[in-house]
């Protein structure tokens, strides 16, 4: 009967192939489905952008692009898996670029830097400070006061120390000179949901992860970590953090990254796809407008240049809080001038 079962399996395999889209001519033709490992939970900011971008790439390459969520340990488990995978161009990751640039600073992944990746940026996201709808805090001023007086009694839900929310609360604490108690969840969406349910008192995850809950009246948005107010349909404009605190703001870029060492034609093909199929896609624009992200497509050297400020501010922030296991200078980041050392 073994053969009979195998016949069944084979039939299913061919059905699957028939379902995948037809291929377009490209210089690089992947031999199978491409895996994008999202090292965060499904529904989070990284996952959302990856899922908007994946079909665009799938259509252009003519193969399936599969999103694999591999959350855990501030995204380092999934990222490590991509670094460990064969460099055949079939395994990519999606993340916020500052994470990939600073995993070695926090010690989560040893010996890695921004130059381990070919960078394809799609959007920039800003963290949003929110509290449950029934919270005692009506605006950010009240919350800031509470942080300064009650410190570690205020619980802040994030997706972990190196997540966008974790970095945001850390830099807020530095700028506002206060203490807090961070509670780690498996991703940005779970952190936002836990805050909406009242388990945590504040969340500083990204706006895109919270807009649905804010729109549904379950979270109250207090301030956006940007120098511009956040304006999204169905939500009152959210004031910028600069109304209360004087702090550096670096745009937090998200995108898809391919590990260095893959064949050149992979990168040539992806450069063209990003320019022709992703940068000006309606799907990505619509996503950004609905969820409060900023459309910011770039690739190659430009993408790297754009990523450096947030990477430096994140790495130096970790170092100043004593969370770094290696000096940012080892990555070529100068924390005095907040710029890159040229020898890099």
């Amino acid at each position: 009967m073994g053969h009979r079962t195998i016949a069944g399996f084979a039939a299913s395999a061919f059905a699957t192939i028939a379902l995948s889209t037809g291929a377009l001519a490209q210089d690089w033709q992947p031999s199978g489905p491409i895996n994008i490992i999202v090292p965060w939970g499904a529904g989070g900011s990284t996952d959302q952008v990856a899922r908007v971008t994946a079909p665009l790439i799938a259509e252009a390459l003519g193969v399936n692009v599969v999103i694999v969520n591999q959350p855990g340990a501030s995204g380092s488990i999934g990222t490590q898996a991509v670094l460990d995978a064969p460099r055949d161009g079939m395994t990519w990751t999606a993340n916020a670029i500052k994470n990939n640039a600073t995993y070695s600073v926090s010690g989560l992944i040893e010996d890695t830097s921004i130059d381990d990746w070919h960078i394809y940026l799609s959007v920039a996201n800003a963290p949003l400070v929110s509290v449950p709808a029934d919270s005692e805090f009506q605006d950010f001023g009240e919350l800031l006061e509470a942080f300064r007086t009650r410190g570690e009694d205020i619980t802040v839900a994030t997706a972990g120390g190196t997540s966008s929310g974790g970095t945001a609360i850390a830099s807020l604490a530095t700028a506002g000179d206060f203490d807090y108690r961070m509670i780690t969840y498996d991703g940005g969406a779970p952190a936002a949901i836990a805050t909406a349910s009242g388990e945590a008192m504040v969340t500083t995850q990204l706006a895109v992860e919270q807009t649905e809950l804010v729109r549904g009246g379950r979270l109250r948005a207090l301030a956006i970590l940007s120098d511009q107010p956040l304006i999204v349909e169905g939500v009152d404009p959210v004031p910028p953090i600069t109304d209360w605190l004087d702090m550096p703001i670096a745009p937090d870029y998200f995108g898809i990254f391919i590990p260095r060492g893959v064949p050149d034609e992979v990168i040539a093909t992806m450069d063209r796809i990003w320019e022709e199929n992703v940068a000006n896609s309606d799907a990505l624009r619509e996503y950004a407008e609905t969820f409060g992200a900023v459309l910011a497509p770039s690739w190659g050297e430009e993408a790297r240049a754009r990523s450096i400020p947030i990477a430096i501010s994140d790495a130096c922030g970790k170092a100043s809080r004593g969370e770094a296991v290696i000096e940012p200078a080892e990555l070529g980041f100068d924390c005095e001038t907040m710029s890159e050392i040229d020898s890099q």
Partner: peptide, 18 residues
Amino acid sequence: QAVIVGVTVTLVFQFGFL
């Protein structure tokens, strides 16, 4: 049986399931 199983499984997984 050995040859049939070896070849079929290999073909199905290599080319069917990639």
